[in-house]
Design a protein around this nucleic acid. Structure first.
Lengths: 342, 342
DNA sequence: AAAGCGACCGAAAACCTTTTCGGTACGTTC
DNA sequence: GAACGTACCGAAAAGGTTTTCGGTCGCTTT
């Protein structure tokens, strides 16, 4: 616990201090510390030593002021409580982190006023770019302010097709899910979806339908839309079993819905996966691993999405800014609810 | 969609630009925009107009460089995926947000090297302070680097008693939980806790014990330690019912454990809350509202904790830095698993 | 020995804002 | 008419870093 050689209140060491201690000019000190040439090796050594002794840390503000680039980006999210922003944020931090970029986090909480306020503040801090993370995959209006730095929309695409958006491939996810169930030998597949007002729900349905059609396998019953909650899963599963007792697989709109479905199946004495296979979307660990048996799910690769967004932003700094909506692939994570021994 | 009056590549307007357009000096422009006096009302008007026309946004870097304060703080978390950092972060953002403070978010992912790296970067950016959020309530080592700005530890206290830490009152939480169960008329209370290696688990047990002793009510069986997962809850509940079939309340170490306990109770035909009351800790919405019936839980008031940490940091900027461990009160949120009609 | 060259170093400008202090102009008072 | 006060405005410095360009010194070449 080596505490404070630089006690509170002591002004942080500046480059001048280092230069003075090393007996050189600030210019030389700067060059020495930044590894530029035209500095004698021995001089460089002296400077480095002086810097270490003063625990010199260059002032990024001054540097940014001069360079016109700050090495910061703003991450504007709409709901932090939601579990989608987080992995994206992690991925973005990951992609940036290796380099010299720091992330300003702002939560607008779905409030347009607050959003503008945050955008203003971020621009005032001269961020090099912005990532806007939506709370659902439904398109959202673009930023109200005119912004002279690149912006990437993540998870929720911008309504403006001129903007660049990175979103999960929900259609592909639906398709993958059905393909997995078919690969497990299921042929009487039902789909209990989530909230029909969300494009995520509709897209997954679309993908699932397409895969079923291609395989020539009919869907059992109608797609059931409801909410994203466990209660809906329980209720919908009850109705499904009454109507189509010979169903052998249930694709669920989310892991939560799947948990509800599992509960009802258990109550009704159906064995999973022997009698009925069940799978969900989102691959939310606490849901999948708490389930009996562990729940097969489609992972949205959100960290990957975050990384992609961050990289897209980075590219926009130098080259021309891209536009349009790009999708990130999902992946099936098989567990005991579809595969007996998993 | 009023886009880009300031197209990409155009240098952002500076105060000189505004001054030139308004026909005044930069000094006057600055005073006008910052509402200082000694500026003629009419002149001020001209400046404001010019600023609006150029959509001028003052450069926080230059301002911070001069003022010695940046209006930024670093929020260093150990695991972003964990659900504890988030509400704290929200609370902190909340407390800061009203003012002029922006938050740098860094995730060290439990890696000391990465943590140092982030601390360095943050100091280089001249943050005014740091909040360090731990991933469990167990004490953590203080920051390795010597830091000349105030630091507040949140959720996980620092091992160094000279540091200032803000943590949830887990002992109080345990006490409150038992008091709630007693108030519900329960007298045969068992406690299925979580992972004994976590001080959160032990503290809650301690509080629960104290409350039971004060009421003169004995605990049914021994405190059962295990993991934080649903599976443990299911298993432990099975053993409990075999050993003490006449139990009328189960206090669980977490909401996840409680979910498992509820499952087993249901499998064994016990009605909740009629036969057995169940409650958990953390008040994790997705767990409590998905349960049958909805789960009573103790909320750790993490947003409050975050706000408190932020405020403590703010106070440290001006006045002397506090020290020691401060706790934040928890609160019971009663639902159907303990109260019949809730 | 003079000229030239390479290696290294330092002075100064630039980035943008805020604040201090000196200056101007005008109206007021004796 | 002169001295003074007030209200307003502008020049300049400060904050810390990077980069450019000019300068010095010692060594080599002819």
């Amino acid at each position: 616990m080596a505490r404070s050689p630089a006690p509170r209140g002591t002004r942080a060491a500046t480059l001048s201090d280092v230069a003075r201690l090393a007996g050189v000019s600030v210019a030389t000190a700067s060059k020495a510390l930044n590894g530029r040439n035209h500095v004698h090796a021995q001089t460089r050594e002296r400077v480095l030593e002086a810097a270490a002794q003063l625990s010199f840390s260059p002032n990024s503000l001054a540097r940014g002021l001069l360079a016109g680039r700050t090495g910061t980006v703003g991450l504007l999210t709409s709901d932090l409580v939601g579990r989608f922003s987080l992995p994206i944020l992690m991925g973005a931090e990951d992609a940036f982190g290796a380099g010299q970029v720091s992330v300003f986090l702002c939560d607008a909480r779905g409030d347009a006023i607050r959003e503008r306020h945050h955008v203003r503040a971020l621009l005032s801090r001269r961020v090099d770019g912005l990532i806007v993370v939506g709370s659902s995959t439904d398109p959202r209006p673009p930023l109200a302010d005119s912004v002279d730095v690149p912006v990437v929309y993540a998870y929720a695409p911008s309504e403006d097709p001129e903007d660049l958006s990175i979103v999960p491939d929900n259609v592909g996810a639906g398709r993958m899910a059905v393909e997995h169930l078919l690969a497990c030998g299921r042929t009487r597949i039902a789909h209990i979806s989530g909230d029909r007002h969300y494009s995520a729900a509709r897209d997954r349905v679309e993908g699932a339908r397409a895969a079923l059609e291609e395989a020539g396998v009919p869907l059992v019953g109608q797609v059931a839309y409801g909410t994203w909650e466990e209660g809906w899963g329980r209720a919908a599963a009850g109705m499904l079993l009454d109507r189509d007792p010979d169903v052998d697989a249930v694709l669920c709109g989310s892991d939560q819905v799947a948990r509800g479905v599992l509960d009802t199946l258990r109550d009704r004495g159906r064995r999973v996966p022997d009698d009925v296979a069940v799978m969900g979307f989102d691959n939310w660990e606490v849901m999948t691993s708490g389930a009996r048996p562990h729940l097969t799910s489609v992972d949205m690769n959100l960290e990957d999405l975050g990384r992609t967004a961050a990289r897209a932003l980075f590219e926009s700094l130098d080259t021309e800014h891209g536009k349009g909506v790009r999708t990130v692939q999902c992946r099936v994570v098989p567990r005991g609810s579809t595969v007996p021994d998993a």
